[in-house]
Amino acid sequence: MFALISGWHHRLNSQAHHGAVPFYVLVPALRKEAEMVDISVQSSDLEREQRSSTVNARLEEYWTKYSNGEVPTSTFLKAVSHLYGPSE
């Protein structure tokens, strides 16, 4: 997290030419940065939603197989643990 903030601060300082920047120059730079952050957050949210819907679809598939008796409990639990476990 510190690296992200540090990078953001460095980029903002570069745009402000590392010194006392007039207010009328600083405000547009901050506004531009805020728009970039908003776009970045929206993109991140979209990726998270796509991953979540994929996980939910797979979970439903495993649950159906388990409910129909097609797979034993141990297989079902292993499959679910792979869905929610750490990614490699």
Rank of each mutant, 00 (worst) to 15 (best):
G7F: 09
V37A: 10
E47I: 07
I39T: 10
R51D: 08
Y66E: 05
L83W: 04
P28S: 02
R58H: 09
S53A: 08
D45R: 14
L77F: 10
S81C: 08
I5C: 10
F2Y: 12
P86C: 05
I5T: 11
F23R: 12
N68W: 09
F76Q: 02
A16N: 03
H18T: 01
N56W: 05
V41G: 01
H17M: 02
V55W: 06
L30S: 01
L30I: 03
R51V: 03
G19A: 04
S67N: 13
R31S: 03
P28R: 02
I5K: 14
M36Y: 01
E33L: 04
Q42V: 03
N13L: 12
L83P: 02
A34H: 05
I39D: 03
A29F: 10
L83G: 06
Q42N: 06
E33Q: 08
L4N: 13
L77Q: 11
P28G: 02
R58E: 11
V25E: 10
V27G: 00
S81P: 00
L4P: 02
T64K: 14
E88V: 10
S14Y: 07
I39L: 03
E47P: 00
R58K: 15
H17P: 00
S74M: 09
G7P: 02
S52I: 08
W63E: 14
E47R: 14
E33T: 05
L4G: 14
S81E: 15
V71A: 04
S53I: 06
Y62C: 06
N56D: 11
N13G: 04
V21E: 01
S81F: 08
P22N: 05
G19H: 04
H9T: 14
A79T: 03
I39A: 09
S52G: 00
V80G: 05
L12I: 14
R48S: 06
